[in-house]
Design a protein around this nucleic acid. Structure first.
Lengths: 191, 191
DNA sequence: CGTTGCGGAATGAACGTTCATTCCTATAAT
DNA sequence: ATTATAGGAATGAACGTTCATTCCGCAACG
């Protein structure tokens, strides 16, 4: 049983390098160096690079889901729930730019495609929140009657774009701007 | 002076392979094979792979801009112009999935980052249409008073997401669904 | 009209580099 | 002493690019 903190070091190094330089700019040798570890050591903790990346992704996904679930209340009105979740997600992106950039890289990669497929069939815990929210919204006639996927796109398309542009420095989002932007997203999905 | 149709073959092969498999799944040797051309021949037309990809991108960008400009009327009301442009873009994506997937790959890559930077400073012809549209919309008080970048994100974030999900088969967009989705985007940016 | 010579275009095997992965040695723990 | 862990040089596959060679169309010449 290897020392766990080495694994942590490796994962952090991988996260930082991939977020900064993309998958291509993060060879195993560099990851090892930045983690203060031998190249071969990584393979004591992960079968190969793909497994390492998938593990890392799942970890970040869990963190994001936890952030979303934190403070989420089933009882409040749909619109309030939507605004809360939207602002939480956007804040998470802005406060964790490294996480965001890694996630972005991941979903726009061969890895991400397969992952998306799976998500549509089997239900994921974090996803359920949105599914439920949107289904409730349609049922209560406060949201437009679209297929769920479209509602996702209307709501999250802007969020990802906003997160990216803030992190790239194209716009500087403060709290009021975030709030107004999420309200605009609501205007897109609500009726 | 080399025969021009070889260049066309090469560019098409590159477009198809990159759209299908990403940049990694499109080695020069494969591109050459699919183009019915020797590997070295590519380098008679392009200095290197980066130049080839940049050229290809500019070509697709021009095609998309042409599609947008086609049927665009400066005189009509803002909302109508927005709906027209939005529907045109989304239709272009759906009718040209290969183009769309290449563009998607490109903008989510080291290449795309640099390109985005440039776009913000120097004005591009196709971009001007949107800039003008959004600026007019704000001035006439029919759009929310956001920084331009945010309006872009609110409007195009969903478009890209919708195009991707349609092409991946997660949703099947018909004409009425497209129209309604663009109207929803308008609800996001309009007031 | 047939032959020869020429120059740009095309080729693909070969090269050098990069990278993930393996393997063997050294070290620490029990 | 035996085993578990770490290290990093070695390995081999894959890739972009190069270059010596071949191909091809055409003009000059006999």
């Amino acid at each position: 049983m290897p020392k766990p903190d080495k694994k942590v070091d490796i994962v952090r190094a991988a996260l930082e390098l991939i977020a900064e330089n993309g998958f291509h700019g993060a060879p195993m040798a560099l990851i090892a160096e930045q983690a203060g570890v031998g190249a071969g050591t990584i393979y004591r903790y992960f079968a190969n690079k793909d497994v390492m990346i998938a593990t890392l992704f799942r970890e970040l996904e869990d963190r994001l889901n936890a952030a979303i679930l934190d403070g989420y209340e089933t009882g409040t009105p749909i619109r309030e729930r939507f605004l809360h979740v939207g602002a939480t997600v956007l804040h998470y992106f802005i406060d964790n730019p490294t996480d965001f950039r890694f996630l972005e890289q991941f979903i726009n990669s061969p890895y991400g495609a397969a992952h998306r497929r799976d998500k549509l069939l089997g239900t994921q815990e974090g996803c359920d929140v949105f599914k439920e929210l949107f289904e409730d919204g349609i049922a209560q006639q406060v949201m437009k009657d679209f297929p769920l996927v479209i509602l996702f796109d209307l709501a999250f398309g802007p969020l990802l774009a906003l997160g990216r542009d803030h992190i790239l420095g194209f716009v500087s989002l403060d709290d009021t701007l975030i709030e107004r932007a999420i309200e605009a997203c609501w205007d897109g999905v609500g009726r």
